[in-house]
Design a protein around this nucleic acid. Structure first.
Lengths: 340, 340
DNA sequence: CGAGTCTTCCAAAGCGCTTTGGCTTTTTCG
DNA sequence: CGAAAAAGCCAAAGCGCTTTGGAAGACTCG
């Protein structure tokens, strides 16, 4: 059933039927109803390929997926996707993942924009002065950044959580509990979120005249193994930290293992706070000692990004509005006073 | 730069240029070279929307993503995606994720097929007599199942690992080590993989005159928490198992925690084997006691599925060939003789 | 050498939608 | 009441590609 047939059986022109269906004003309400009715009754659905060719709109949002042999997709991606999908579903938006060589994403961005494959894109895990931002900004496709970049002379729309604030709060709590030697096990510090987190910790320490020593900061991709290694390195120093702030629950698993291996206890010898993106399959309250966390649902972020993307596509949202979500600090058993 | 312009500057018809570019035989090699050259020089790329409207081919593969408030996307998905993307990238294939109400995926399948949005789809986590299979089979779109279903009177193309064989081997090993009371912590037993795994364990036990008691089998979604709960339930019985085979590394985390909480040791009191899909961020050799596993890279499976999907699209692969990958049994410290 | 066969190319007809420009009718209002 | 404005509809021109049905010219071969 295509437009031609439908308009034929209604004895109307394709123009009118098309307009009726798409809510244009220059059609009699009575007629519109008739059209709508017939369309529904016959299960007419406009062919997206045709519509797309005619309008240039695809009804899809895009994501350039960095791939490569040594490239791992962040496990957070799944949760973000859950949220995104949740919203997208209710709006019949599809998501196009365009795999790209991690070292040359530009080609892919250019391709999907030139081909008008998607109406908007989102960018995740941005770095300072991230080239992808500059690129999509000049390419002129609607986009939203999940996270933030830095060092641009233009504004851009983003959704981020208050990483600095969260880690500031976490560190401040620990300082208040008497900890003098704090350490930070961070994610890849080429990414902005990690920079912000470090900044938060430093600021909290500075407020009490403390500092984050060079030896008290690690920045690694977020695996259990790296959490373990970092913790070992930190805790086997001559002046080990008495508290650690950690960028991910997965790394925290490794930290806990290291603490055990060294015969230490939490929170007796070490206080631990980690950031929790809220995975359904790994919950901080189920750690051997319930883990204090800075918590922010990455899933909700996904839904919100989808929502804003849709708004930008339809022109409801304009400009470069940045949105920063506060982060909860959830205190559980893994923090305590500094050992004497 | 479109076909019209290109053919104009070459003083050729659109027909000829199109044919030259698409490798049709009825064009002079000399001409073809000229065309190819000009196309490359001017960076001509056929507009996919137009091509799509004309041919009905989209150059994309599809996946219907079950979503919903209470629906979690399997964390394995990311790794599978890595592999899929890896292959897809080198072939300029994009992946379309169509979010669907988890309880009504049929509508979405029908939509993407009717709209010819994708050239092929893959289906994951199939159940016995999975309706999605019957559906795509009748809809006539090329597809591949990652995993297997059961109970159909038609064959279908799939890629699966030898779950039964893997768990058979694991259980057999434990039996050989003298274990009489085995337990299985399985994934959702509505899915075929879980059924196969259970079958494997039962077969190994039966071979030695043993059985898998009703009380020695749990089947739950694969979270750390569920692993913990299952392990507690199993180990606090009057006749607790001396060995556990577990369907996922994430659940195994919970098992290990439960064992600790109960003051037991691995492998002294309990031997443990888990299935490892090979996550970069959680490795069995890094468990407190290195974990024995049945191992199969889900990432490689993703790449292979993409490869076969591409082959089916281009007509290189036909028929309903099933492909079953063997699974490695990797023995590490977490297994030992049965306690006396 | 002329009929038949290849080779090589082309004009034009789709694919199914949106949108422009215009043409009737009807309504409005001084 | 008549001119101007508004409402409602339509034919046809795209969007940019593929593909059908020829046609012209070059080759083959009895």
């Amino acid at each position: 059933m295509n437009l031609k047939q439908l308009s034929h059986m209604l004895s109307l022109s394709q123009t009118t039927v098309s307009r009726a269906l798409n809510g244009y004003p220059e059609v009699n309400e009575e007629t519109r109803r008739r059209v709508m009715d017939a369309a529904k009754r016959h299960g007419y659905r406009p062919n997206p390929s045709a519509r797309r060719l005619a309008t240039g709109k695809s009804g899809m949002i895009g994501y350039v997926l960095p791939t490569g042999n040594a490239v791992d997709i962040d496990p957070h991606f799944v949760e973000f996707l859950s949220g995104l999908g949740d919203y997208a579903r209710s709006h019949e938006l599809d998501l196009v993942l365009s795999p790209a060589d991690a070292d040359d994403q530009e080609t892919t961005y250019r391709r999907i924009v030139a081909n008008r494959q998607v109406d908007a894109v989102y960018i995740s895990s941005p770095r300072p002065a991230d080239r992808r931002l500059a690129l999509v900004n000049t390419l002129g496709i609607p986009f939203i950044v999940h996270g933030r970049s830095e060092g641009f002379d233009f504004d851009y729309p983003y959704l981020d959580i208050d990483n600095e604030g969260a880690f500031h709060e976490a560190a401040r709590l620990l300082v208040q509990l008497g900890h003098k030697r704090l350490a930070l096990i961070n994610g890849d510090d080429r990414e902005t979120f990690a920079i912000h987190r470090e900044r938060g910790v430093r600021r909290a320490l500075a407020a009490s005249g403390l500092a984050l020593g060079e030896r008290h900061i690690c920045s690694l991709t977020m695996t259990e193994e790296n959490g373990y290694r970092a913790a070992r390195r930190l805790l086997e120093q001559s002046e080990p930290p008495t508290a650690i702030v950690c960028s991910s629950l997965i790394m925290a698993l490794g930290v806990v293992r290291a603490v055990r291996d060294l015969g230490l206890t939490i929170p007796g010898d070490l206080s631990l706070v980690a950031h929790d993106d809220v995975f359904p399959w790994l919950r901080p309250e189920n750690f051997p000692v319930p883990l204090s966390t800075t918590r922010s649902s990455i899933r909700l972020a996904g839904a919100r990004v989808a929502e804003r993307l849709a708004a930008r596509i339809s022109g409801l949202e304009e400009g470069a509005r940045g949105e920063v979500w506060p982060v909860d600090l959830v205190i559980r058993g893994s923090v305590g006073g500094a050992p004497v």
